[in-house]
Design a protein around this nucleic acid. Structure first.
Lengths: 134, 134
DNA sequence: GGAAAATACGACCGATTTTATCCGATTTTA
DNA sequence: TAAAATCGGATAAAATCGGTCGTATTTTCC
């Protein structure tokens, strides 16, 4: 319960790696997967998502790979999560998918108080950047 | 991702219900399940857990049921979660189960920074009580 | 021009977790 | 003694997640 997905973990590890080295050095999914002992195929998928979200820039072909597309301080944790996960990181489904997603929505009495915790978490993800995990 | 379990949701709804009515009125699992449209058997299991943790007191037999065992302001959200879930609500497995639970533990670079978020969440759960969700 | 190395993308499988249900036992009241 | 309720173990059903595979495309280098 309350777990981050492995995909997000791997994405953060990779982004921290990019942030910790020279900006212009391209890294391949293979390099990173070997260095941090992460399944290659899965990391590749995550990096593709980050690339699609313009968080990293990709170079195809031999000697290709990825580099950061922005300064680490410009990449929020929430950006990373949104890029990797299709669903927002919410404590309850109704926060992410609205009233229709919850059959007890009208009877629910804890949505508002839990919203405080939710806001707290959201703020944290929205404030913290990759620069702070290097 | 980052979801609370239904069990915890149901537990909080039930505890809020107890807190919102007269202290000495016993409520049955059936009543609560009907009022809030919660699966009866599942709620029953959750209430049993809360009873075992001495958060509510149970009365067996006809006209039995449950009442709060303490004032709402004395029941922390963290108490409720710990009673219902066997595993601590942590962002990553290693926080809950230690180094041996994560094969990339030694290579992991994000454990410390994520710990800040974890602490933030823990503090919230440890500070907020049932009194604040009534 | 061709081989190799890398990303791009979709489909799928298996394991685990979560949700929900079922059943029998015990307790207590009326 | 019957009914209503908790207790608790077992199990089934559903959803999620981690991981893998295969194929296509792009680019570099010889």
């Amino acid at each position: 319960m309350l777990r981050l997905s492995k995909r997000v973990e791997y994405g953060l590890i990779a982004l921290r790696h990019f942030a910790a080295i020279n900006d212009s050095t391209v890294c391949t999914a293979k390099e990173i997967s070997q260095k941090y002992n992460i399944p290659h195929e899965l990391l590749a998928k995550v990096l593709q998502k980050l690339s699609q979200a313009r968080i990293i820039q990709s170079y195809q072909g031999v000697r290709g790979g990825y580099v950061l597309a922005h300064a680490p301080s410009k990449i929020k944790i929430s950006d990373v999560i949104n890029a990797i996960e299709h669903e927002k990181p919410m404590l309850a489904e109704c926060y992410a998918d609205g009233p229709a997603s919850c059959i007890i929505f009208d009877d629910c009495t804890i949505r508002r108080p839990l919203g405080k915790i939710q806001k707290n978490i959201n703020d944290f993800f929205h404030t913290m950047t990759i620069a702070e995990i290097v």
